[in-house]
Design a protein around this nucleic acid. Structure first.
Length: 877
DNA sequence: TGCGTCACG
DNA sequence: ACGTACGTGACGCAT
């Protein structure tokens, strides 16, 4: 069996990877997509080729011989974005850590290095495989030298393979003739000028007849077509130079000892560290965890009897700390508990009944000195812990605080990031089946899943909470997010009473009008089509009906409301479409959508997610109760079906302009602070300052514009965005903004300071130290960077407001509980709290809401709320 | 599964 | 010159 060497064209593969994979950064904002893609390609090919030797060649940053000679052609290359160039040293570091041989030499291009190494290796009797995206290298192909060109697409990597026959098949030419081909046709990417007027077709034809460039010149008068003949004659010097440039040097002066390229221990502590640092979770599985993992898994215990359970729990209670996992899906299948060296799955069965098990686990948790969870709120669904304790460590939330834009915080992600362990995900373990099915068919898989949770919870806890401490977010966890888990759990359990029949009637009431509109739209369009399909609708409006000002999206015409509204005056059909859209939305998302979530208790139990948003807000899903219509009357009517139970009433408390107040506080702007302290109409006051007129003279239009500006400030406004919103020109909008900043110079300073600070630190920060990493600020792409600047301004404001309402929620919840009131907090909508209030407790709860919400934070301006009561949610808002 | 659209703060 | 307000989730369509 012949030995084999793989030679990789470093820059070329990094380039392909970079452009083939969407932008990707680690949590520190370091760009990693090129490196990631490079490694994927490399691993794939190593797996396929199984070489004994491997070398990666890089161009030097200094200009090389060939480039130097043809500076003037360099203009045809796009400058390398710094997102890519920053990854060159990175990939070198990673390769070094993997003990992979890297070669580069001043004055030589990677081509020349590869050519020389290839020649050297085949002379030594090795098979050679070259990996590059550059077709220049085709000239090196021989029976024992294969060129492989990887292509990264969204469906993975495919590779084109070239032996001499393949080259002939594709180019009709032998590999060595590729040099002549390039000499004739040139290659702008490689700065080879070629012969003017000669392209691939002509060049191929010439070479098929005369074999080489030299022979072509011997017969230059006979060349066809005459145009090519003429051009060759006129450009002899260029041809010679081109050939020189196109020829890869296979005898370059390098010291290459093949033993240096011998593949060694790619997967070692050093490289593991690099992979962890770059957060290449998937690639970590390349490290030979298999043995280690099996060892761990063999130690997973499976408890099925009460006797074994009691023995185990007795030991667990002596432990310093425990980690927990749970298999729950509509019902409980079991818990896993990890401590010291033990990790057991306790199965719910005929002997170990659910209630009894929960009771015992609860005792254990209460008795423990430290208990960590992947998802404490989930555990609370089966185990009723009294209240938050500092020893309850929720790792998902901890990891979310460390990096709120990390996406997912499940055990396999955290084990990958914090433990360098590659664990199979639930999807993989359950083979995409339900827990119920897997539990029946292959119980071991459920055991493994749950024990992995417990293991990760136990082992990652110190790392995550040490890190939180370092980042000064311990208080945020222990005083805010931790206690909030119990508040959200309670809200989810309480749910919200919905009048099922009334909701159905509401939905039915829409149907008649929807059908009527549908019919009329078809009539006016002259055909039936799917109004819900933006694609079909676009064609009807902008092609068939020839409406003006068509704006395109990626997939077709834009038919969004703001576009249609501009056409509504002239085309009656557009108004009908807009109304149809409104009604269709109400029907599908709200009337029908919500009905699916009404439980047997006639209540809707939404999920409140604590680890989703980049800014610290809570999100609501299945269903989303934070986007129930209110702006339009017809939609708002839905709120009448949300009602308090018998003997109760809704109390709804709304922070008044909390974000602008936060801005006033954080910026310290006296004018704004003063306006709030004196309870001024803030938009009027803004208008007065901006237009430099007395407050009494502010017109409604001026107020409206000032209000939009105030919103804009919070969003990191651009002139364009404001203009769009107000329907005024870019210039007018820019003028408003300038006037605003002149009136409130401190706010401008403050916002600019936020951007500067975020750029320097790499993250933004709220009043309560909540972070948001901001890798976009370092992007070279204008769009991305501008987005970064806007979020740098918005996140501290939106995030601080979110912090404040979270505090208010905790305080309100705890006060209601402390006083043993029947009234319950059931919903929070960003700046609003809804309490289902017992009739006899109304005054008391009003007081609590007022006091706790206003007192949630001490700002330089008062925090004011608007409090309403109602026998349904419509009335209470 | 991604996109367009639209509901909310 | 870039193409634009910040943060979410659900639905229907088209691939």
């Amino acid at each position: 069996m012949k030995e084999k060497i793989v030679l990789i064209d470093g820059h070329s593969i990094l380039n392909r990877a970079f452009y083939g994979i969407p932008a990707l950064t680690n949590s520190k904002g370091i760009y990693t997509n090129g490196v990631y893609g490079f490694l994927n390609i490399m691993f794939k090919l190593i797996d396929e080729e199984n070489p004994q030797y491997l070398a990666v060649a890089f161009d030097t940053s200094k200009p090389t011989f060939r480039h130097e000679m043809f500076k003037e052609y360099k203009g045809t290359r796009k400058p390398t974005p710094k997102e890519l160039s920053s990854q060159v040293p990175l990939i070198k570091e990673v390769l070094s850590a993997m003990n992979i041989f890297i070669i580069s030499k001043a004055g030589l291009e990677a081509d020349d290095l590869i050519g020389t190494m290839a020649e050297y290796s085949r002379n030594k009797g090795l098979d050679v495989v070259i990996i590059s995206g550059d077709r220049d290298l085709l000239q090196l192909v021989k029976d024992d030298v294969k060129l492989r060109i990887p292509k990264t697409t969204r469906n993975g990597t495919t590779v084109e393979n070239y032996y001499p026959d393949d080259v002939i098949e594709k180019y009709q030419l032998k590999p060595a003739q590729i040099i002549d081909l390039k000499s004739l046709m040139g290659d702008s990417a490689d700065n080879i000028p070629g012969i003017p007027g000669v392209g691939e077709k002509t060049a191929t034809k010439i070479l098929l007849e005369y074999e080489t460039l030299e022979k072509a010149y011997e017969n230059v008068d006979n060349l066809k077509p005459p145009k090519a003949s003429k051009s060759l004659k006129e450009n002899y010097d260029l041809a010679v130079l081109s050939k020189k440039l196109a020829t890869i040097n296979t005898k370059a002066d390098i010291e290459f000892d093949i033993e240096n390229a011998k593949l060694g221990s790619m997967f070692n502590e050093n490289s593991k560290e690099k992979f962890v640092e770059l957060e290449f979770k998937n690639l970590l599985s390349r490290f030979s965890f298999e043995d280690e993992k099996e060892k761990i898994e063999r130690k997973f215990e499976h408890i099925v009897t009460l006797k074994a359970l009691d023995e185990f729990l007795n030991e667990a209670k002596k432990a310093k700390e425990i980690g927990t996992g749970m298999a729950y899906e509509k019902k409980l299948y079991g818990f896993s508990i990890a401590f010291d060296e033990r990790n057991a799955f306790i199965e719910v069965n005929d002997e170990i009944k659910e209630d009894e098990l929960c009771e015992k686990i609860k005792e254990l948790i209460i008795a423990s000195k430290s208990a960590s969870f992947m998802d404490l709120k989930g555990i609370l669904k089966v185990i009723n812990l009294e209240k938050f304790e500092n020893k309850y460590l929720d790792l998902s939330i901890g990891a979310y605080l460390i990096n709120p834009i990390g996406g997912s915080y499940s055990y396999e992600d955290l084990a990958g990031i914090y433990l360098n362990e590659s664990l199979e995900s639930p999807k993989e373990l359950l083979l995409k089946n339900s827990i119920e099915k897997t539990f029946k068919e292959d119980k071991k898989r459920v055991l493994t899943l749950t024990c992995y949770q417990a293991m990760t919870a136990l082992l990652a806890k110190n790392i995550i909470f040490e890190k939180l401490k370092e980042m000064e977010m311990s208080d945020l966890y222990f005083n805010m997010e931790g206690p909030l888990i119990f508040v959200l759990d309670a809200m989810e359990k309480e749910g919200m009473l919905v009048k099922r029949e009334a909701l159905k009637e509401y939905g039915d009431s829409l149907v008649g009008r929807i059908n009527q509109l549908e019919k009329s739209i078809y009539e006016k369009a002259g055909e039936e089509f799917n109004i819900n399909s933006p694609k079909q609708l676009g064609v009807i409006l902008f092609e068939k009906l020839q409406m003006p000002n068509a704006k395109k999206t990626k997939t077709g015409y834009s038919t969004s409301a703001d576009i249609l509204e501009k056409l509504a005056g002239e085309y009656p059909i557009v108004n009908e479409i807009l109304e149809y859209r409104t009604l269709a939305k109400l029907k599908s998302t709200y009337a029908d959508g919500l009905a699916n979530y009404i439980g047997k208790d006639e209540r809707i139990h939404s999920n409140f997610n604590q680890t989703i948003t980049a800014t610290g807000r809570i999100s609501s899903t299945e269903p989303n109760l934070q986007n129930i219509p209110i702006k339009l009357e017809l939609g708002r009517l839905i709120r009448k079906v949300f009602v308090p139970k018998d003997g109760f009433i809704f109390l709804d408390a709304d922070y008044s302009q909390i974000e602008l107040r936060v801005l006033a506080h954080m910026s310290g702007d006296e004018t704004l602070i003063d306006a709030y302290r004196n309870s001024k109409d803030i938009h009027k006051a803004t208008a007065a300052s901006v237009f430099n007129i007395p407050i009494e003279e502010v017109t409604p239009l001026q107020r409206r514009n000032a209000k939009a500006v105030n919103f804009g400030i919070i969003y990191g406004m651009s002139a364009f965005g404001l203009g769009q919103d107000l329907g005024i020109s870019n210039k007018e909008a820019a003028d408003y903004i300038e006037k605003y900043y002149n009136a409130y110079p401190k706010i401008k300073m403050f916002l600019d300071g936020l951007v500067a600070s975020a750029r320097e630190k790499g993250y933004s920060i709220t009043m309560f130290n909540r972070r948001r990493p901001m890798p976009e600020l370092k992007a070279s792409n204008f769009m991305q960077r501008s987005f970064g600047e806007r979020t740098a301004k918005n996140s501290p404001i939106q995030g601080s407001a979110a912090d404040i309402i979270k505090i208010a929620m905790i305080e309100v919840y705890e006060e209601l509980k402390k006083r043993n009131l029947k009234s319950k907090l059931i919903l929070s909508v960003h700046d609003e709290l809804l309490v289902e209030t017992a009739l006899e407790e109304v005054e008391e709860v009003k007081k609590i809401l007022t006091e706790k919400m206003m007192g949630a934070a001490k700002l330089q301006v008062p925090l004011e709320i608007e409090l309403e009561t109602g026998t349904n949610w419509y009335e209470a808002k």
